[in-house]
Design a protein around this nucleic acid. Structure first.
Lengths: 339, 339
DNA sequence: CTGAAAGCGCTAACAC
DNA sequence: GTGTTAGCGCTTTCAG
C-alpha cells in the first residue's frame, strides 16, 4: 500500500464527475463551468492533490527535465554553473538532473545512458578530461535530445556551445600587469595540449607583443598547481632571474607563487605583482588579496540553459548551432596594485 | 516528430511477436525460448533500445529516483556530501535529483513540491538556515516518502538522521591545543542560537575544564567569518590580552585570525597556535597550513543514502528511526605544531 | 458543458 | 512458450 498519493480519479469519484472534467477544471479550461472548477479546485486543495509528473511525462513525451553532465561539482566554478542552470530551469518549469562524471569517461557514458533512460528533454554537458570518444553524446543527439556544451567543448560535434574567451581574459590580465608598470612577467602555464592552456598562454604573449615587450621563453613555465608554482618560483629566484610580475593559469598556482615569493623576502605587489585566473574561492582570503579573472560560472549556467530551453521549446529546432563566447572580468585586488 | 526513440513495440513489430514477449525476453524471463531471447536482444542492441524509465516509473509506482534538498552546493562540504550520495545511489540503480534551497525557506518549499511531483522514492534533506515551519517536510512523509536528514537536522521531526559529533570534534581539537602546551586558548564561536554553534563551544569548554584550565569568558568571542576574526584579533591584541592558542568555529574564521596574528608580528605556531573547523578547501594553501577538523562530507552522503535506500527497499519500513553520529577527524597541520 | 475512449511505454496476471 | 488484456495517471479528441 505504497503511494497514498491522491490522483485525479480520486477527485472525480468524490465529486461524481469524470476524470477528464477534473483534468480540465484543474487547468482552467474555458469549457468548464465556474461552479465545477471551484468544487474541483477546492477538493484538490483539501486533499493536497499534486499532479503526477511521471504520468504527464509519459503522456506528453516530454519530461520537462534537463540533464546536466558535469565533471566535478566540488569546484567552485562548476557549482556556480549549476546554480545558474537551476535558476533558469526552475523559472521555466523544468527540473534538473545532475550527473557527475568525476572526470571519468566510463562514468560519463553511464551518465548519458541514465539521462536517456530518464527521457530528459535536453542535456547540458561539459566533457571530462579523458573523453576522447563521443559516441555516447552522438547517441543522445541521434535520439533527438538537444545538447549544449559549456566550458569544455568538443570541437567536432555539431551543437550549441558556451565558452569563456580565455585568450582575451589572459590578454587583459597580462595587459593590466603591463599597464601598472611591470616589464618582466612570468607566466605559469597550464598543459599546452589542452586548448585552455594554449589560449591562456597566447593571451599573455599577445599582450607582451602588443606592448613591445620581449617574450622570454625562460619566463614561460608549465606549472598549474600550488606545489609546482612553489618549486618554479624557488628555481627562478635561485637562478637570480629578474621578474616583477607573475600571471598564473589558475588561482592555486598564483597562491603558491605568492607564498614562495613572500617567503623569500619579496614584497607583493611592491616588488612583484601577481595575477591569477578563476577559481573564485580563494582570492579574498590571501594576503594580499589576489587579483584574478572571474569566470562568471553562474552566467555561463544561465546562458547555456537558455540556449537549451530555446531549442527544446522551439517549434522548429533546426536553426543553426550557435557558439556564445562570454567575457571574463579581471578583478583587481591587492596582489597587483595598492588598494 | 520528436522521440525517434525505439520502444518495445517497435521490436515486437519487427520480429512479429508480442510486446510482452519482448519485455520478458529483455529481462531474461525463464519462460522465453533461448532463440527468441537472442533475436530480441540482438535487435534491441541494433536499434539501440533504451528502456523508458518514465513508463516504468508510472507502471511500478516507483521512480528509482531520490531527491536531495541541499542548502548551497558551492560549499565544499555540501558538494562532498553530494558525491557520496551519487555514488551510493547510482550503484543501487537510483537516480538523483538535486535541489538547492539557496538557504531560502520559500525555495525549500518549492523543492519539496517538485520532488513530490516527480514522485521520488525518498528524500535526503538538510534544512535551510531560515526554515522554521516544517509543513512541506511533513507533507512528504504524509505521502509515504521517507526522509533522511543530514547535517542540519530538525529536532521535532520523526525521521532518520545523520549528523557529525560536533561537540566531540571540538573537544578533540581543543584538547590537541592543550596537549601541545597551550594554556590560554581563544574560541571564535558561531551563533549560539544555532545548535552547531553551541556544541562547538561546549566541546571547547569541556576540554578546558577537563584539563583544569580556566574558562575565561573574555576569550570566548562570537565571530564566525574571516572579517570578524580579523577585527576580534586586533581588539584582543590592542587590549594586550595574552593568548597562545585559537580555536575557530570554521576555517575561514581561523584564516582571518591567522593573517591578523601574523601581521601583528606573532609567529604561528611558535607563539600562537591556530585550529579551524571543516571547510576543507583552504587548509592546504595557508601559510602555515591549517590544522582543522575534517567533517567527512562524502561519508555523510554515503551513510545518509544507505539509510534512505534501506527504508525505500525494505518490505517493512516501519522499524524505528535511527540517528547516526559520525566522527570528525582532526587533521593536524602546521598551524598548531611544527611539521 | 461534460463524458467515454484511446493511448503514452511498459509489465503482469491470465489465458491457451 | 507466447499472446491478450488491463492498467499505472493523465490528456485529448470525439461525441453528445
Amino acid at each position: 500500500m505504497k503511494s497514498g498519493l491522491v490522483t485525479i480519479k480520486d477527485i472525480a469519484r468524490e465529486l461524481n464527475i469524470s476524470a477528464s472534467t477534473v483534468s480540465r477544471a484543474l487547468k482552467n479550461h474555458p469549457d468548464i463551468s465556474e461552479e465545477t472548477k471551484r468544487a474541483v479546485n477546492e477538493l484538490a486543495q483539501k486533499l493536497n492533490y499534486q499532479p503526477n509528473a511521471v504520468a504527464l511525462s509519459l503522456k506528453q513525451r516530454r519530461s520537462h527535465t534537463i540533464g546536466v553532465i558535469i565533471p566535478e561539482i566540488v569546484h567552485y566554478f562548476f557549482s556556480s554553473v549549476i546554480s545558474g542552470i537551476e535558476d533558469v530551469a526552475y523559472d521555466a518549469g523544468f527540473n534538473v538532473i545532475i550527473c557527475q562524471s568525476n572526470e571519468r569517461y566510463e562514468r560519463e557514458v553511464a551518465n548519458a545512458r541514465t539521462l536517456l533512460a530518464s527521457r530528459v528533454d535536453g542535456v547540458l554537458v561539459s566533457v571530462s578530461k579523458h573523453t576522447e570518444d563521443f559516441q555516447h553524446l552522438h547517441n543522445l543527439q541521434d535520439n533527438n535530445i538537444p545538447l549544449v556544451f559549456y566550458d569544455r567543448i568538443v570541437p567536432g560535434l555539431e551543437a550549441d556551445q558556451v565558452i569563456i574567451d580565455d585568450l582575451d581574459a589572459s590578454y587583459r590580465a597580462t595587459r593590466h600587469l603591463i599597464e601598472t608598470g611591470r616589464k618582466r612577467i612570468v607566466h605559469f602555464a597550464g598543459p599546452q595540449k589542452l586548448l585552455i592552456g594554449r589560449q591562456r598562454k597566447d593571451g599573455y604573449v599577445k599582450a607582451l607583443e602588443e606592448a613591445g615587450l620581449e617574450v622570454d621563453p625562460s619566463l614561460i613555465i608549465e606549472a598549474d598547481s600550488f606545489e609546482k608554482a612553489r618549486l618554479a618560483v624557488m628555481r627562478l629566484l635561485n637562478e637570480k632571474k629578474k621578474f616583477d610580475g607573475v600571471f598564473a593559469t589558475n588561482d592555486l598556482t598564483a597562491i603558491g607563487a605568492m607564498q614562495t615569493i613572500q617567503k623569500r623576502g619579496f614584497k607583493i605587489p611592491d616588488e612583484i605583482a601577481v595575477v591569477g585566473f578563476s577559481d573564485g574561492r580563494f582570492s579574498g582570503i590571501t594576503d594580499p588579496t589576489l587579483t584574478s579573472v572571474d569566470q562568471h560560472g553562474y552566467e555561463m549556467g544561465t546562458v547555456a540553459t537558455e540556449m537549451l530551453l530555446r531549442r527544446i521549446t522551439s517549434e522548429n529546432s533546426d536553426y543553426p548551432y550557435e557558439t556564445r563566447v562570454l567575457n571574463a572580468d579581471l578583478i583587481v585586488r591587492g596582489s597587483s596594485v595598492f588598494l
